[in-house]
Computed example of a mutant assay.
Amino acid sequence: MKTLVICSGGLDSVSLAHMVAARRELTGLLSFDYGQRHRKELDFAARCAARLGVPHQLIDISGIGAALSGSALTDALEVPDGHYAEETMRVTVVPNRNAIMLAIAFGIAAAKGDEAVAAAVHGGDHFIYPDCRPAFTDSFAAMQKAALDGYAEIELFVPFVHRSKADIVTEGARHATPFAETWSCYKGGANHCGRCGTCVERREAFALAGIADPTSYDDADFWRRALAGHAAGGA
């Protein structure tokens, strides 16, 4: 099945791209510049496309991103440290981000003759990001079926929507994903910070999967304290 993968350059979407390349017909990677502060991830998306031998298309929606103000990912707000499943992480929500990106991706896929659009939303994001939940992906798929009725039939392929990030690490390893060639950190420094929500989640995922984490972190041990603090807070 001809499949277009939305790829940010992060661990999840790069692992998805490698999985699709092995199981389907990968037609290309699609990335978005929405004005994110950690836009260095886009370089990793380009590297992934080159590695897999497919086109990489970068869509500039930074003007739209600038209007979606109030997120620590786009504005001059401090990116919080800690676990994703904490209320403080809501400042990293970019409203309607996935809906906007997916709508563009489906239009491009229809124009190209693709049969599916793949996105790496996963179960670990459900608490904080409403547009990563099954209710959203199911509704979006139904909406696109109506939007393209009589023109194209395109599947929304979200194989991780009910699975954890540890499952993604396991799947990525199965398909020889070079994890060191992915970028997750929201702070966009020289190394992964090890303290922001996505770094903590990344470290935890490798540990749960029992797979060595090749990532260089500025604070490689913070994740244990963050998880302990979150567990104590929920007790």
Rank of each mutant, 00 (worst) to 15 (best):
E201W: 14
H175A: 04
D12H: 08
G123P: 01
L102R: 04
H83K: 12
E153F: 04
R225D: 12
A67S: 14
G197L: 05
P55Q: 10
R90T: 01
V54H: 03
K165I: 03
C185D: 06
D213N: 15
A116E: 05
A141C: 07
L29C: 05
E181P: 00
V20I: 12
D60H: 09
C48D: 09
T170K: 15
A110F: 11
R174S: 14
A76V: 12
N96Q: 13
R202M: 07
Q36M: 10
A120L: 06
P55M: 08
N96R: 03
V169G: 09
P134E: 06
V169Y: 02
I100K: 01
C185Q: 01
H230V: 12
R47D: 13
G107K: 00
D219I: 07
K187M: 14
L68S: 11
T3P: 09
I61K: 00
A72C: 10
A142L: 15
V54C: 11
P178C: 00
A45G: 08
D33W: 13
T177W: 02
D213G: 05
T88I: 08
P95D: 02
A46P: 01
C132R: 02
L16Y: 05
F106N: 02
L73F: 03
A232S: 11
K165M: 06
Y129M: 11
A152K: 11
A116P: 01
E201Q: 15
A85L: 10
L148E: 07
G234T: 15
V94A: 03
F44K: 01
K40F: 10
R37M: 06
I128G: 06
A135S: 15
N191Q: 13
A111R: 15
R51G: 01
G82E: 01
V93C: 11
P214R: 12
Y151C: 13
D81E: 15
V93L: 15
A110L: 10
V161S: 04
T27E: 03
K145I: 03
T137E: 03
Y186P: 01
D218I: 12
H122P: 02
D33V: 08
V169F: 02
E204W: 11
S31G: 13
M1G: 12
A190G: 01
R90K: 15
F179N: 08
A111W: 00
F32W: 02
R224E: 10
A76G: 09
E25W: 09
I104E: 13
G82L: 07
V169Q: 09
G188V: 05
V14N: 05
S164Q: 11
G234N: 15
A49N: 05
R224S: 01
E171M: 15
D149T: 14
M1W: 11
I100E: 02
H162P: 03
A152G: 05
R163A: 12
A220F: 10
T215D: 06
D167F: 14
D125A: 10
T92F: 06
G35C: 00
H83E: 15
D219P: 12
A76C: 05
G194C: 10
Q144P: 08
V161A: 04
E204I: 09
R23I: 03
G188I: 14
A21I: 06
R133H: 06
H83S: 12
G172I: 03
H162N: 14
P95S: 07
C196I: 08
H162Q: 14
A110V: 08
G124C: 04
G172L: 00
G9A: 10
L148P: 00
A118F: 04
L4Q: 08
F136K: 00
C132F: 05
V200R: 02
E87D: 15
A141P: 03
V121W: 02
A176K: 11
